[in-house]
């Protein structure tokens, strides 16, 4: 499947799972988008790839307020989180995030909004291609915590009524931005 079709398929599936997909022109556009939608303190979980893209300076140039942390539990005060990701899965609109670094987990579990940067070139078709990708990520480290995220947190536990945002983020924003790094190096490692 052509890369463009794959991106379209990904976007369709992600949106039908309740995510917002935004095509960023560049890192400043991404930072401005985050500033506009964060709604409060942002917990930024940096990694090499995001840094190479220039997220730190772009965020400080933008209006967003970054969360100052003195202990890990301060993460609970974040209103929004920003992480990278390693792959997308087009068939389900899933982002695959190496979440071994604890900050990535804190930024993607506690806040109400989660912004995740995805390189459109790293979108795979589906579960059949995911196996090798997951194994590649696992070979890079002695222990790991890998996450599939598809849309916001949801529940139907009361009278089967679908309700968005129970324990995890209520809003998921996927920012498509071409990376400088190779996906297997990890946009988030």
């Amino acid at each position: 499947m052509k890369s463009r079709n794959r991106i379209n398929l990904f976007q369709q599936a992600a949106e039908s799972a309740g995510a917002v997909v935004y095509h960023c022109q560049d890192v400043n556009d991404a930072a401005a988008y985050i500033a506009e939608h964060a709604g409060g303190a942002l917990l930024y979980a940096p990694n090499d790839s995001l840094e190479q893209l220039g997220f730190s300076p772009a965020l400080s140039r933008s209006e967003v307020s970054l969360l100052e942390m003195t202990s890990r539990l301060d993460a609970a005060d974040a209103v929004a989180g920003l992480t990278g990701s390693n792959y997308g899965l087009a068939e389900t609109g899933t982002v695959v995030i190496d979440s071994t670094a604890e900050l990535v987990r804190l930024a993607s579990t506690l806040p109400e909004r989660h912004f995740v940067v995805l390189d459109p070139q790293a979108i795979l078709l589906g579960q059949q291609e995911a196996g090798q990708a997951l194994r590649d990520l696992q070979h890079q480290q002695p222990a790991d915590y890998l996450s599939y995220i598809t849309g916001p947190s949801r529940t139907a536990d009361i009278e089967r009524v679908l309700t968005i945002g129970v324990h995890g983020p209520c809003e998921l924003y996927i920012l498509l931005l071409s990376a400088v790094a190779q996906p297997e190096k990890g946009v988030s490692s």
């Binding site: 799972a17 068939e91 389900t92 670094a101 604890e102 997951l134 599939y148 598809t150 139907a156």
Partner: peptide
């Protein structure tokens, strides 16, 4: 539940970082 996939699938292998320790 008739979902193509759930919101989260989490793969855990071994002792991962937790604060300053594992």
């Amino acid at each position: 539940t008739g979902q193509a996939i759930t919101s989260y699938v989490t793969w855990i292998r071994g002792a991962v970082p937790c604060g300053d320790v594992n």
